[in-house]
């Protein structure tokens, strides 16, 4: 019994170690202040697998740290940001999350 328990714990630890987080830098035009970013950040945080959301206002970038299994599609993001009142221009992916 103890063997099985150890095996399960080991599998969980291994699977957690293997779950990799990546960062998407989303270029969004029209965001100018912390208050403007809030509703977009709220919508992104509702997506399963999204760990944290930050912003770099000077560069017009919203940074999303998410499980690598999360797939963001340009068309969906474009629609989401239009609903929030802003303009999605594109995104790039980084293999590691910065502190956001």
């Amino acid at each position: 019994m103890m063997k099985y328990l150890l095996a399960i714990i080991t599998m969980v630890l291994v699977s957690n170690t293997n779950a990799k987080d990546v960062q998407y830098d989303m270029r969004v035009d029209g965001i100018t202040c912390p208050f403007c970013v809030a509703t977009s950040a709220k919508a992104l945080k509702k997506i399963d697998g999204v760990k944290s959301v930050g912003s770099d206002l000077e560069k017009g970038i919203i940074k999303v740290c998410a499980d690598e299994k999360v797939i963001f599609k340009d068309e969906e993001l474009k629609k989401m940001f239009i609903d929030k009142g802003f303009t999605f221009k594109g995104m790039s992916k980084k293999e590691q999350c910065e502190s956001v």
């Binding site: 035009d29 029209g30 965001i31 100018t32």
Partner: peptide, 9 residues
């Protein structure tokens, strides 16, 4: 009228 640009609108 709306004109969004990097870091502004």
């Amino acid at each position: 009228y709306k004109n969004d640009f990097k870091g502004g609108s």
